Simulated assay, not measured.
Amino acid sequence: MLPVHLDGSPGALETLKRAIARALGGGPAVLPFTDPALRDAMAPDEPAEPETAVVIATSGSTGAPKGVLLSARALTASAEATHARLGGPGHWLLATPAHYIGGLQVLVRSLLAGTEPAVLTGTGFRPDDFAAAAATLTGGGPRYTALVPTQLVRLLDDGGAGLAAAKTFDAIVLGAAATTPAVRERAADAGVRIVPAYGMSETASGCVYDGFPLDGVRVELADGRIRIAGDVLAHGYRGRPDLTAEAFGDGWFTTSDRGIRHDDGRLEVLGRADDMINTGGVKVSANAIERVLCAQPGVRDACVVGLPDPEWGEAVVALVVPAGEPGDLRAAVRAELGPASAPKRIEFGTELPLRGPGKIDRAAVKTRLQSGFSG
């Protein structure tokens, strides 16, 4: 296995691009990383599992390291299906870290399209840097990028050169976290063409675009749990046959997410299967409460968790990022979802802690709320 340390330098990214090209052609499996401890957990000196082209190392939602095994077939199937859905091969801007699947797939798509990706440089995400990177995209054909919702919100809030650059893209794929109805509306009003995507490392990035599976991808629900099949699937976890057997079987990958299918076939993701909070003997959905909160005027973002409580067993508690003066948020939740879902406590902060590219770190939210975090 070939570990590639992405230290932020252009040389490291070039090394990764060359390594991916070789891996897609049958060369050594590639392990992109930034955290040496996570690299070591992947046992890079041991041979890679058969058919592995890339190992995506992740700490996972529980903090336990996992290495997702992706074949050249899965990576290629995902990239080709993405281009087919968006409007054909094009020029990509890499704006998310390449050691995560969303960023890595930008490199794969560019390789298959025969185009050179533009790269967002610098630390953090600044709208002016995004505009400068977008300006380096050359050549004819469609222009694409992949962002997380937090990045898009920053572009919309800035309203300057970054937003102007965002409008020049034929499609901005949004992944890693859910795109709220409010963000969808803001993007449409601003003239930014977004494509919310659902997927994960185990599906070689987004495999359901705006509610509908990509070509070659099948989706079903088993007891409300989302299951996915198709060539885009990983073939297991690095050194964890137990986890592989638990999640993969008969050509299907069983996710940790709940969903519903609408009459038109559109998939709606309702949140993780473990986001249910048992409060006073009533099970309520943290994700549903977050959706109501985020739909209220004066709310930019929200995370809801259950905290141990001597009276209720678990108390519904929310961390809210305001965007103005929120109204009576408890009343809004109570009116739409019932009294059991109304948060017992609401704290306000300037931002939600994130894990990886735009995913809310719920463990960190719990820690803050348990310690009485208030801003």
Results as ranks from 00 to 15, higher is better:
A81V: 13
E202I: 11
P339A: 12
T179M: 10
V148T: 15
Y209H: 15
K66I: 02
L104I: 06
P310R: 10
T82K: 00
V316D: 08
L70T: 06
T168A: 07
A190C: 01
S9W: 01
A57G: 14
G280N: 10
G372D: 04
P10S: 09
V282E: 11
F125A: 13
P97A: 10
G211L: 05
A165D: 01
A363K: 14
M276R: 15
K359R: 15
G60N: 02
L69M: 06
A176C: 12
L163P: 01
G249S: 07
R218P: 01
A98K: 05
G175Q: 05
G259A: 13
L307W: 04
V305D: 07
R227H: 10
A340I: 11
A29P: 06
G251K: 05
L163T: 03
Y198I: 08
L13W: 00
G249H: 06
A165N: 03
V148Q: 09
Q151P: 06
G327F: 05
A342M: 10
P241R: 06
A323W: 04
T168N: 01
T180S: 15
G324W: 13
V192T: 00
A171Q: 13
R266A: 08
S371C: 00
L86K: 13
G313H: 07
R193N: 15
L221I: 09
S341K: 06
T76S: 07
V173P: 00
G162V: 09
A57V: 08
G175Y: 08
H262E: 14
R22D: 12
W252R: 10
P213H: 11
A190N: 02
L270H: 03
P127Q: 01
P10I: 09
A315K: 13
A342D: 06
S9H: 05
V4I: 14
G159K: 09
A95F: 00
L16R: 02
A43R: 15
G114M: 04
I194H: 04
T34S: 12
A315H: 02
I346E: 01
D128E: 14
V106K: 03
E336Q: 15
